[in-house]
Structures are given as structure tokens and as C-alpha cells.
């Protein structure tokens, strides 16, 4: 039992997970969920009470409902962009590593260079300026700052594998290039990619929160963690609940995703391959926004 669920730490994690589920269920059936953008559902700047579990903000909106909506927006958009970056980065990386389309390889490599020469916080600014600050711009800005990691990981690893005996042996039993890539190279690299994806998710949360905090992310009234913290700033001394809850949500999710990535990395023993490849991991993710 302990083995299967992963020991004592894991039991704690499952407990927290269960608690969140129960809380969500309670909120849903007890009528605590209000529209996250509807103003004056309660008084202005009300402290947490039974009616408004996390209080209300300066426009009388329910903080809990806003936090829930913001969680969906922040994590959802981050997830979409990480998956996108993983798919495209992996495909291009293997394509270039195996020189599948020879005349495209230099072009792909050039794009790959571009993706990693900009600091993770600058590139998103440029992309948002180009594509606008709606959901698509957010996803693209996170995608562009992340895909390069997957690209270079796959490029290096697939090139490194070409000299390994078991890959050569796969050719020696009559394997074709595609068969070797799909049945040998990809399964070998999949855990590494998954761990990198988990750690990139953390970076993505950092990026979208930073953008929102600076006011160049999704525009009001759509709530995100970053914008909630930014809007709450003037009321910090009157209404602590406006600042504290989004920050706690942000910290918990970044730490949780980070822990998950480390856990996967240790289980599959791929940490040394992923390390040094994650960008925006300079320890500032959770703190830059505040």
C-alpha cells in the first residue's frame, strides 16, 4: 500500500488533494460561488465572513469566486502552452536531431537559437506586444519562452543516442529509421520530456502571473492571480485578504508543481539530464510577481 501510493509524504499530498476536493464540493453546493466579475454582490472590502469566505474586494466582488476563476485561467492557459511547447519542441528537436528534412534543419536550428537567447521575462513582453494581451497572446508568449528547452533537450539527446549500441542493434535487426525513432528513441526520452514539462509548467505560471501583475496580461475584469495581487496593492493595509489569498494560491501551486517534477525526475532517474535545461528556474518565479 505504502509502496503503491508512494510513502508518507504522498499520503500528506493525497490528504491535501482530498481536502481541496471536499472544499470545492462544499463551495459548489452551499451557494458560496458568485460570479467572479459581478460587482457589489456584497459590501466593499468586507473581511472574510460566513457569507464571503475570503472577503470582498474594493468593488464588492467575492474574492473566493475570483480566486477560483483565476486558478482556472492561470493554470489552464499555462497547461495549454506547456503541452503545445512540449509537442512542437519535441517534434522539431527530433526532426533536427535526425535530420529528417535536411533542408529545414538549419532553419529549425536558427529558430531554436532565437528561443533561448532572450531572457524568459523579455520574450513574453515582445510577444504580447505583437499578438495582443488576450488569451491567445498569453499562450503564445508562454509557448515561445518554453519550447526551446524541449527542442534542445530532444535535439541533443536524440543525437547522443545515435551512437549507442542498442540503437545500432535496432537497425541491425532490420529496423527502419522511423521504426527506431518511434519504438526506441521516443520511449527512451519520454520520461525526460515529461519531467521537463512539469518543471516548465512552473515557469509558465510564473510568466503569466508576472505579465498580469504588470498589467500587460489578460485585462480586467478577467481575474488572474497576478492581476488580483496588483489590484489589491493599494488596499494592502486595509484589506489583507485581498493580497494574501492569491499569493498563497500562487506559492502553493508553484511549490506543488516543482515538487511533482522533482519526484518524477527522481523516480525515472532523469534529473541530471533535465537539470540546467529549465529556464526561469533561478528561484525567482514565485517572488517576482509580488
Amino acid at each position: 500500500m505504502n509502496q503503491r501510493w508512494g510513502g508518507r509524504n504522498a499520503i500528506l499530498i493525497w490528504c491535501v488533494f482530498g481536502l481541496v476536493l471536499v472544499a470545492a464540493f462544499y463551495i459548489a453546493i452551499s451557494g458560496h460561488f458568485y460570479s467572479p466579475i459581478e460587482p457589489f454582490v456584497g459590501g466593499k472590502l468586507q473581511p472574510p465572513s460566513h457569507a464571503f469566505l475570503m472577503g470582498t474586494d474594493e468593488l464588492g466582488r467575492d474574492v473566493l469566486s475570483r480566486l477560483i476563476a483565476a486558478t482556472g485561467v492561470t493554470l489552464g492557459l499555462s497547461l495549454v502552452s506547456v503541452v503545445l511547447a512540449m509537442l512542437i519542441g519535441t517534434l522539431l528537436g527530433m526532426g533536427a536531431g535526425y535530420n529528417l528534412v535536411p533542408f529545414l534543419t538549419p532553419v529549425i536550428l536558427f529558430l531554436g537559437q532565437i528561443s533561448i537567447i532572450f531572457p524568459t521575462r523579455w520574450l513574453p513582453l515582445m510577444i504580447v506586444a505583437l499578438f495582443g494581451n488576450h488569451a491567445l497572446g498569453m499562450v503564445l508568449s508562454m509557448f515561445f519562452s518554453l519550447w526551446g528547452q524541449f527542442f534542445w533537450l530532444m535535439y541533443d539527446e536524440s543525437r547522443g543516442l545515435q551512437g549507442r549500441t542498442f540503437i545500432q542493434a535496432a537497425y541491425a535487426v532490420g529496423g527502419t529509421k522511423w521504426k527506431v525513432i518511434i519504438f526506441h528513441v521516443f520511449p527512451y526520452l519520454a520520461p525526460t520530456v515529461l519531467v521537463l514539462a512539469t518543471l516548465s509548467f512552473r515557469t509558465a505560471i510564473g510568466v503569466i502571473s508576472t505579465l498580469s501583475f504588470l498589467g500587460i496580461g489578460l485585462q480586467p475584469p478577467t481575474p488572474t492571480w497576478g492581476s488580483m495581487i496588483a489590484e489589491a496593492q493599494p488596499y494592502f493595509f486595509q484589506a489583507w485578504w485581498l493580497v494574501v489569498f492569491p499569493i498563497v494560491a500562487l506559492i502553493i501551486s508553484v511549490l506543488a508543481v516543482n515538487g511533482l517534477g522533482n519526484r518524477f525526475g527522481k523516480r525515472w532517474d532523469v534529473m541530471d539530464r533535465v537539470q540546467g535545461r529549465t529556464r526561469g528556474s533561478e528561484g525567482t518565479d514565485a517572488t517576482t510577481v509580488t
Binding site: 542498442f166 542493434a169 535496432a170 541491425a172 535487426v173 532490420g174 526506441h184 527512451y188
Partner: peptide, 24 residues
């Protein structure tokens, strides 16, 4: 050549510990 390899000509490698895919 792909049709020939592993069928008419097959090969035994030097170090069996590196010649198998470690995760399959």
C-alpha cells in the same frame, strides 16, 4: 538493406548490456 538486416545477415554485439533497450 533493411530487409536483409536481421533476416539474412544478423549480428551479435560485443556487450549485451548496452545492446538492449534498457526500458523495454
Amino acid at each position: 538493406m533493411q530487409k536483409l538486416r536481421g533476416k539474412d545477415i544478423s549480428m551479435v554485439f560485443q556487450d549485451p548490456k548496452t545492446a538492449f533497450h534498457p526500458m523495454m
